Deep mutational scan, measured.
Amino acid sequence: MPSETPQAEVGPTGCPHRSGPHSAKGSLEKGSPEDKEAKEPLWIRPDAPSRCTWQLGRPASESPHHHTAPAKSPKILPDILKKIGDTPMVRINKIGKKFGLKCELLAKCEFFNAGGSVKDRISLRMIEDAERDGTLKPGDTIIEPTSGNTGIGLALAAAVRGYRCIIVMPEKMSSEKVDVLRALGAEIVRTPTNARFDSPESHVGVAWRLKNEIPNSHILDQYRNASNPLAHYDTTADEILQQCDGKLDMLVASVGTGGTITGIARKLKEKCPGCRIIGVDPEGSILAEPEELNQTEQTTYEVEGIGYDFIPTVLDRTVVDKWFKSNDEEAFTFARMLIAQEGLLCGGSAGSTVAVAVKAAQELQEGQRCVVILPDSVRNYMTKFLSDRWMLQKGFLKEEDLTEKKPWWWHLRVQELGLSAPLTVLPTITCGHTIEILREKGFDQAPVVDEAGVILGMVTLGNMLSSLLAGKVQPSDQVGKVIYKQFKQIRLTDTLGRLSHILEMDHFALVV
């Protein structure tokens, strides 16, 4: 994948999101292997301009796509893939009243899908469409860049269908997702969380590099694949309309690839034109409109599966009536509230959605109805927002919020430890010299600072030695090549209790 991002070429006709291997024109390309080798690009942008032909009021008969309808489940399912879809609609009884809503608040519980998330729908649909058009064949390999849930859905379907599955996901995604993927037989590649989507090191860039190296491999490409919004247009939206008897006044959905909100909203605009569509985008993402909503100094966020630093091709923002931004604290607070007060075992993005819903639905009156999409299960986040310690460490809970008995030293300040200034190293000294210094002084790690004293990161003896043994660096290389740029900081005025929580999850903390 090139470091400079080429513009994806656009073909003359058809839909841009065809499933299957992508040609340089962004659509299915038939021909000899030699032709494909000559024409197939190194990668295709996940934010390529959409060429979708959908228009409100256009006859369904003019759609270029294969459409399906929700099917009634048999008493005995032939395999677990038949437990994807037909998820329950559940009334939220307490939270709406707590925040003064007059309307009825309903939750579409997508964590009841077989793999635990709304992404099971698009995973199965992308595979079925690729099999139907002859792209996927027995023994082929599926590769997908994902925040985890699409990966789980694909790995689940691949396990049943017999495909090899490789999932490329950023490091910030939970260990629970990784464990589930491994249990399903998927191979996992992790990428830096802070890598831009168009960087060769991003999950998108690495996935395309693997595709170019592995024979008979395919990126189904949830960011561009029409099967993504079509899955929701054909099934999720129809289920909502049936469950609500066609009567709903507002739908609120958090947005990642945009397939969920695009597919549902398009069908609702056709069948229930008075329904307002509300999009939820986390602070630090750029999906919301108008652009002024996205202006923030924050560039990272903890909530998973929603928000991006690019506009995915499948996201149709014209069908969203209003956007709201959400933050991590309210997302996790509301997710825990949904679990504790409503018994809905949902993930953090569901918290984002409901946090926005109780604001947006203030305009609705008694007798009206708001539906929220709860995308995934708490299963993926047992060591994250479900953990009091994690919430404390991230600053989303305060010590006084917890009532468990603490040891005698818990409320003492870090400054009472009488710490001395640490050994520091410059980023320009060599790895070999740094190892000598650390061994001589008896230290395992040291902060790396520039000549102005600005902290650049941390270097550890173990990481340097393993990097040297693996051949990633040489003793003569500058130590700046092996620094940890993500590390926890703590102030002298913070409590030892807070430091204790940090050290339970990290090997060190830097006192500043």
Rank of each mutant, 00 (worst) to 15 (best):
E176L: 08
H203G: 06
L241A: 10
A195T: 09
K39F: 06
V90G: 02
H67N: 02
L77W: 05
D120R: 04
H65W: 04
R161G: 10
D249A: 15
V252W: 15
A157C: 08
Q243P: 04
D221C: 06
G85L: 02
L106F: 13
K271V: 10
P170H: 02
V118R: 02
N212D: 10
H22M: 02
K271R: 11
P41F: 02
H65I: 05
V255G: 05
A24L: 11
N228V: 02
R182M: 02
A253S: 07
C272A: 11
M173W: 02
A157S: 04
G100I: 02
E239V: 02
D221L: 04
G185L: 02
I44V: 14
K271C: 15
A195W: 09
D238C: 09
G151A: 02
L220D: 02
Q222P: 11
P170D: 07
T68W: 09
W208M: 08
T262Y: 02
M173Y: 09
T13S: 02
S217L: 02
I219S: 08
G96A: 12
R161S: 14
E110F: 05
R266F: 06
K36V: 02
M173G: 05
A226G: 07
A237F: 02
T135Y: 13
P273S: 10
S63M: 02
I188C: 02
V90P: 05
A157G: 11
H67G: 05
L181H: 12
P145T: 07
R91Y: 11
N149V: 02
G11S: 13
F99Y: 15
K94G: 11
G100D: 12
D238I: 08
E213I: 08
A38S: 15
E128C: 02
C15A: 02
R164Q: 02
G134F: 05
N113S: 12
L81E: 15
G26F: 06
H65T: 07
L154G: 02
H17Y: 14
I44G: 02
C165A: 12
E187T: 15
L156H: 08
Q55C: 12
L42S: 05
P21L: 11
L230E: 14
S227G: 02
S19N: 05
L56D: 11
D234N: 10
M173F: 02
R276N: 13
E201W: 12
H17K: 02
R91V: 04
L77F: 13
E201G: 13
D79F: 14
R18M: 05
R58W: 13
A265F: 02
K172V: 02
S227R: 06
R58P: 09
L105T: 09
L251R: 02
P170V: 02
S3P: 04
S202L: 02
I95W: 02
V252L: 02
V178L: 02
K247A: 12
G274T: 02
P215C: 02
G20E: 13
L77N: 08
V90S: 09
A231G: 06
K98L: 07
K72M: 02
Q55H: 13
R209W: 08
A107V: 15
G259L: 02
S147I: 02
T236E: 02
L106S: 06
H66M: 10
N228D: 04
H232W: 02
I264D: 08
P46N: 04
V118M: 14
S175L: 07
K36I: 15
K172G: 02
Y233S: 05
G116C: 13
I264C: 14
N228L: 05
S19L: 05
D238T: 02
P21A: 07
L28Q: 10
P12I: 02
R164S: 14
